[in-house]
Design a protein around this nucleic acid. Sequence first.
DNA 1: GACGTAATTTGATCGACGTCAAATCTCTTC
DNA 2: GAAGAGATTTGACGTCGATCAAATTACGTC
Lengths: 227, 227
Amino acid sequence: MNSNSKLDNRDRAVLMKTSFMQGLSTNSAIRVLSAMSVLNLPVRHSIFREGEKAELFYCVLSGYVRLYRLSHEGREADIRICGPGDSFAECLLYSDNAYAYNAQTAEHSALAAFDMQMIRDIASEEKDVAQAVMASLSRHLLSIIDCVANDRLFTAPQRVANYILARCPVDGGPALIRLPFQKSLLAGMLGLAPEALSRAFSTLRKSGVTVRGRAIQVVDVANLRNV
Amino acid sequence: MNSNSKLDNRDRAVLMKTSFMQGLSTNSAIRVLSAMSVLNLPVRHSIFREGEKAELFYCVLSGYVRLYRLSHEGREADIRICGPGDSFAECLLYSDNAYAYNAQTAEHSALAAFDMQMIRDIASEEKDVAQAVMASLSRHLLSIIDCVANDRLFTAPQRVANYILARCPVDGGPALIRLPFQKSLLAGMLGLAPEALSRAFSTLRKSGVTVRGRAIQVVDVANLRNV
DNA sequence: GACGTAATTTGATCGACGTCAAATCTCTTC
DNA sequence: GAAGAGATTTGACGTCGATCAAATTACGTC
């Protein structure tokens, strides 16, 4: 398989730190890379649609990808937001052969695209590749379980607080973090309309959360845990 | 590993049809079975709790198991209901070593319990076992993705209609199905309070759905798709 | 730095669903 | 078959978050 563009050093570093590729032997890594090509896509570009025959799975090198489903009436629901290092559609390696959701770039993005059949073949020969696939699948499963539990257990302000806390240093005290993407993406990720996210932030003001653009300031991390 | 009870023929048949065990070579199946023991548990019996060290994963032979998380205030949210043939906690084979949720029986149940370390070792030697793990993980991932999408896209009556439709013959016309468990379990599975499920059923009456106990009668399956 | 577009916020309204309480139904058990 | 516990339904009510519209803010481009 040939590459649509070269794998630059930054992209290569990200790719090697993926849960899918980290820890592979040199030999396996070379074989896996030969089943891969790099795509550079503009913002809001469709990667695949639900129901299409699945022949490639992907790993995000830079940018963000939105995975979503459509209702009959055309409403969209985000299932997952993938950032650098995340892979998606690898759940189809050993199941159905049609994509289970739509994927589109949320920003200008670089993706590694892996040929499913080639990876299947490699995984059946190289134990460490099979193990990498299992590790990657496990990680996803756990993160989606978190997503279901969050949706069902917590209110919008609580979900936002959880998101912030997961990105703060563990101790108490003040913290300053920066959103890696637009708020509307975060909203979809948390299963909220953008308006609801905005209101959740404003609810959190009384818990010491200040938002200006993508910058989020927390007066006291320990305090935010009580929300 | 020894067995708490013998594997009877019915249980064995279920176990062999699991996405985890089906298609294993005789040799692999024997090795896997040697890492397994059977548990017979009464209703509402805790299998493990969130945060406990994960040393076993499970496959349901008969009965039903509820996987759920607790909020700080003690509210419960179901993540998944596992029936005969489903496995759970196998996502920890190659990740974290603590259970990510609570598990308890929803009825008197028979479970196959697999020693994670032994299965890990076997999977690293037998290709088909590794592949079985991947297939099992993939299937779960896809089913939980459906769960997130359903929660976010559909209302209670629509989710109930989807559940019914998934269990009806594909053609139009009338259908009669039977719930395999209590309605309160179905409610949790669909992310609803029992009262909301009840009201959803009564909303569906005008779409030709009649419920009496565990029996669900559908006047016209094709019609139900429009809900 | 000004402009125009896109993103975000805010207000108002509404529907969906959770919760609590009480009534009714359905099983199990004796 | 009767009793009783547990499950389900129904009613009343409150809250949360979606939606629509309008105002405001932020950002990329020239």
